[in-house]
Amino acid sequence: MYPSEYRYTENHEWLKIQEGVCTLGITDYAQNELGEVVYVDLPEAGDSFDAGESFGAIDSSKTSADVYTPLAGEVVEVNSALEEEPELVNEDPHGKGWLVKIRFSSSEGLDEMLSSESYEELAKGQG
């Protein structure tokens, strides 16, 4: 369910880290909690965020949830497909439903992230 090459946060985001850039999305558990996604509010490329800062939000028909980056850095790309197809977050949360790519300025915080096994335990405990 949860790709082993990703890292996870307790706030139910996942990160795929490649050469100083992290791709960030929300987990399958998170999309299931939210329900059907109707809008995704994303930043613009070039925006910078501190570690732990909210960079956007996901609206389902019922609720809204802020999404946070655990790593500080600058947004290099946003998933523009979500503007027309926000449901990708539900259908493929760990793949086509990614949200942003951030070039991180510091790897501080990386150590605190969870492995797929630890995250799965966490999600199971909350579900």
Partner: peptide, 10 residues
């Protein structure tokens, strides 16, 4: 009210 911009009010 209805929103003209994209997003959902809460």
């Amino acid at each position: 009210f209805e929103l003209r911009d994209r997003g959902v009010a809460r």
